[in-house]
Amino acid sequence: MNPSPPVIDVTGLTKVFGHKTVVDHLDMQVGRGEIYGFLGPNGSGKTTFIRMLCGLLRPDDGQGTCLGFDVRTQAELIKPHVGYMSQKFSLYDDMTVRENLDFISRMYGVANRSAAIDRTIGRMNLGRFRDQLAGTLSGGWKQRLALSACMIHEPQLLLLDEPTAGVDPMARRDFWDEVHKLAGEGITALISTHYMDEAERCHRLAYIAYGHLLATGTVAQVVAAEGLVTYEIAGPQLYGLIDRLRGLPGVEQVVAFGITLHVSGREADVLAHSLAPYAAPPLTLRQIPSNLEEVFISLMRKAVT
């Protein structure tokens, strides 16, 4: 059997606001059932890119399809099958949880509306808040409501823009369990996030900075591609050491990590040479695998310089 065509397949997607190119010729292919992480510093164009995929913004250049429909001309056909959760809560504050869900499900023409709403409310544990105004919900519950709203019409593609920002770890875990369950049913998800642990729960990810795609692939591929070498230094009075280490040749990042320091650089030999003096007691030095955060920071630094 042929692999099913990609759910998102765009090339050269570009958006210009005024004189500023916010998304600069971005390509992306996401397959069915995939959970695709979308990372990058604030203002790098994630939201803008997601909005172009679902017809909320018109691309200035580039083409491609989303769910098989042209992103430039067939937004009307894409919209019914997409569940989009905006970065900022955009349901009606002055309507109750139930009223909001009812409005959204009418907009999508959901069959058996009442049952669908009850099911969603039940699954998301929103029962207690059913008749509470959405504006009075706390952050985490608002996220849950927004997530319910974007799934009530059983979309094939979820576009979630920082869905877990400001949500407690427990709720985040529930959320990710839910996403994985949906992926198992063949639903595709593109999720932007700033959390590294969430990035690691994605099948694949893309890292963008200032509108440019800097890395794509599985977590392991992204880490390997950057070729970053990281050492861990442990011992007493490490804080005094940070500034001194930062000036050394080959050292690109020094990060305090609990009671240790992580020192990374791309030139393995130079770095090893610079750090050799810090292997003596009371300090200990050992090489460790680079983590995603170090890789992303390294990517971002490169993008700036």
């Binding site: 905006s86 955009s90 349901l91 907009m107 023409g109």
Partner: peptide, 13 residues
């Protein structure tokens, strides 16, 4: 202004 336009525009309305 309230940002709810985004949610309205994403629906097939």
């Amino acid at each position: 202004e309230r940002g709810t336009m985004e949610n309205l525009l994403i629906t097939p309305v």
